[in-house]
Design a binder for these strands. Sequence first.
DNA 1: GCGCAATATCGACGCACGTCGATGCCCACC
DNA 2: GGTGGGCATCGACGTGCGTCGATATTGCGC
Lengths: 119, 119
Amino acid sequence: MSKPKLPVPLCPAILDGELSRAQAEKLAALFRALADPARVQLLSLIAAQPGAKACACHFTERMALSQPTVSHHLKVLREAGLLERERRGNWLYYHVVPERLAIVSATIWPPTARRARHG
Amino acid sequence: MSKPKLPVPLCPAILDGELSRAQAEKLAALFRALADPARVQLLSLIAAQPGAKACACHFTERMALSQPTVSHHLKVLREAGLLERERRGNWLYYHVVPERLAIVSATIWPPTARRARHG
DNA sequence: GCGCAATATCGACGCACGTCGATGCCCACC
DNA sequence: GGTGGGCATCGACGTGCGTCGATATTGCGC
C-alpha cells in the first residue's frame, strides 16, 4: 500500500491540449527534480552501474559534493518517483525507475504528437 | 547565423552512460526551463491554439499573471529553444519548436533505452 | 549491549528565481 | 511626426533551493 509506482500518466501530454493549473504543477514538479546538474548526473551514474544499481557511498567521491548534499539529491529524486532504494546490510542500493522516466518522456513528446504538427 | 535550431541532440541519453558535468548542466538547464507550472501551461496553451501560434496578449488574462511576468516566462522558454516568435504588425506570435521537445524527450527515454533494462 | 560505519536529518547561509510596478521601445495609424 | 497600444526591460522584494557542518539514526559485528 506504500508503493504507488504504477506506470500511469500523471496528465495529458503538453502538446495535447490546454493543461489545467494542477496538471501543470504536477509536471513542473517532476521537471524540477531533473532541473539540477547533480541530480541528472546522479541518474546517469546509477544507470551506468552494473545491474543499474549503486550504493550511495560511491557517489560522494565521484561528484565533488558532501555526503549530506548527495543524500539530499537522492531524496529529491526518490520523492519524484525516479529512484528507489533497497537495503543490503549497511549499504543502501539505489536504482532508476524506468517506467517513471518513460512517463516523463511521453508527456513531453508522445507518439501521438506527430499527427499534431502544423508545419 | 543567429538561429542554431538544428535538431541535434545536446548530449547522450541519461540512461546511456555516465554524463559529464557539462552535459548534465546542459540537460538540467533545459529541464529548468520546464520546471515552472506557468511555463508548462504556457507551452500547452500555445500548442492548443489553431496553427499552434498565439499572440502574447492572450496569455496575460488566461494565466492570472501580470504582463511582465508572462513576458519573462516567454523569454525563458525562448532562450531554451522551446519557443520561437514572429512579428505580425503590433503583435508577437509565439509557436512551439517541436524538434526541441523531441530532443528532450529522447534524452530522457530514447528508443535504445529498452535494451538497457535489467529487470 | 557496545562501538563503528553508512546514511539521513537538522539548522543555517547564500544565491537564484518568480513576481510585480514603473518605464522604455517599437510599430501602426492618423 | 505625434499619439496610442503591445510588449520587453529594469529594479526591487520575497521565497525557494543547493550547499555544508554538526548531529541523529540505523544496522552490523564482536
